[in-house]
Simulated assay, not measured.
Amino acid sequence: MSTTETAHILIVEDEERLARLVADYLRAAGHRVQHLAEGTGVAAWVRRERPDLILLDLMLPGKDGLDICREIRTESQVPIIMTTARVEEIDRLLGLELGADDYVCKPYSPRELVARVKAVLRRTLAPEPPAADPGPLHLHRDELRVRAGDDEIELTAVEFALLETLHGAPGRIFSRDRLMDRIYRDHRVVSDRTIDSHVKKLRRKLAELVPDQELIHSVYGVGYRYETPADSD
């Protein structure tokens, strides 16, 4: 993986002049830059080339940025900064529906965009501080079992995938859509209530294992996060 000083960045932007300008600024900042002008084939390119960050325009020929972001997120957590001139879409981007790491509204300053890129890369590529305490749980994927001390419980495959996602990023908020993408790799259509039902059952089982701790917390209007009592102090 590249460092924050020499990241491999993909620009997906159909405005050629803007793409060239942004690429020049990013190269001046020390990054390696490549450019795609349409949405078709972006996910396959990302799978093949494995960039460190993607600047993804919302309105693209072939396939729009929303669909591309959803497609990439089914198999990669590469940082994505969305760019858009459609102000009405900002609420959707901020609502964590897509899993984008940041957004920039057009027209923007190339210097501001480079600063946003630097900030996102610092969070995702630089050596990270010690992870938040994952709490008392020890997950055993092969057996779909969760242990706490001398006690353990068995989960369904969906419940385990749900817990593994939340447990792996303590304090991070996951929207219901993001959880669906993580749990249902076959892209089946399920409702928000399905995720809520799985969370309810998972909480019930965890309460049997660690009755004195609430580990999965609801974030009103957004989704869920895993948090130990120590993290919330």
Rank of each mutant, 00 (worst) to 15 (best):
T3Q: 04
I9N: 13
I9E: 09
D14C: 08
A19K: 09
Y25H: 12
R27Q: 12
R27K: 13
A28N: 15
A37R: 13
M59I: 12
P61Q: 06
G62C: 08
L66M: 14
L66Y: 05
D67H: 14
C69R: 02
R73C: 01
E75I: 02
S76M: 04
R86I: 07
V87A: 10
I90R: 02
E97F: 04
P110A: 01
P110L: 01
P110V: 02
V114Y: 02
K118M: 05
K118Y: 01
L121M: 11
R122M: 04
R123L: 14
T124E: 13
P130W: 07
L137N: 01
E143F: 15
E143C: 09
L144M: 11
V146E: 06
V146Q: 07
A148I: 08
D150I: 07
I153G: 05
E154T: 09
A161M: 09
L163V: 00
E164A: 15
L166K: 00
F174R: 00
L179C: 01
H187R: 15
R193H: 15
T194M: 05
S197T: 07
H198A: 06
L202N: 00
R204Q: 09
E208R: 06
L209R: 06
E214R: 13
H217F: 04
Y224E: 00
Y226H: 09
E227I: 03
D231T: 05
